[in-house]
Amino acid sequence: MSEQSENRRQVETLHGLEVTETAVVITVTSNGCTDKDDFEIEVQKSLPPIATFIRVQPDFCEAVPHSVDISFSLKEVGAAEFKVGNPFRPGPRQLSR
């Protein structure tokens, strides 16, 4: 990994999190160009494991900031029961569809 891409990696602030029987949905801020490929999950081995959602590609678009949901399978997270290493804070509204 290059130094430039390492500098772009940041722990994402989450606005919400939902866990179902098959998936984890995180709510994050988007400026118009955020998608699932912009994130990686780092899992710290512990009991239970700690999953941290890392933004690896910044969203440089210029739309009005809004919240979006990004879904990962539990297989992608690597555990059905886990703690979350990300900070949480209220975020902007989701855009109407």
Rank of each mutant, 00 (worst) to 15 (best):
S96K: 14
D38G: 01
T29S: 11
E81C: 13
G85E: 14
E76S: 07
R55Q: 14
V24D: 10
V25W: 11
I70A: 06
H15P: 05
L47D: 13
R9I: 03
I41V: 15
V25F: 12
S71K: 13
N7P: 01
L14V: 09
V11P: 09
P48K: 05
F60D: 12
A51K: 06
P92C: 09
L74W: 11
P90C: 03
E76A: 08
S73E: 04
D35K: 13
S73Y: 03
Q44C: 00
Q94E: 11
D35Q: 14
N31C: 07
E6M: 09
K75S: 14
K45D: 07
K36F: 03
E6G: 04
E3G: 06
V56G: 01
K45H: 02
D35M: 11
E42M: 06
L74G: 12
T52M: 08
F60Y: 09
P92A: 10
V19R: 15
I54K: 12
N31I: 00
Q4V: 12
Q4I: 11
L14Y: 12
R9P: 07
G32A: 02
E42L: 08
R97M: 10
L95P: 04
P58I: 02
A23Y: 11
S71E: 14
I41A: 12
S30A: 07
E81W: 11
D38L: 00
L17H: 05
D38M: 02
A80E: 12
V56C: 02
V68S: 08
N31D: 02
R9E: 14
G32W: 02
E12H: 00
L14M: 13
P48E: 04
F60A: 08
T34P: 09
D35A: 14
S73P: 04
E81I: 14
D59L: 06
Q44H: 02
T29P: 05
E40K: 11
K36T: 02
V77P: 10
T20A: 13
F72Q: 09
R89T: 08
V43Y: 01
G78D: 14
E21F: 04
A63F: 10
L74N: 12
G32M: 03
I70R: 06
P48R: 04
K83V: 00
E81K: 15
P65W: 01
P65M: 03
T52Q: 10
F39E: 03
T29Y: 06
L47K: 08
P92K: 06
E6Y: 05
N31L: 06
R55L: 02
F53W: 00
V68M: 05
Q94W: 00
D69C: 08
V28R: 10
E6K: 11
S30Y: 05
L95T: 07
C33Q: 14
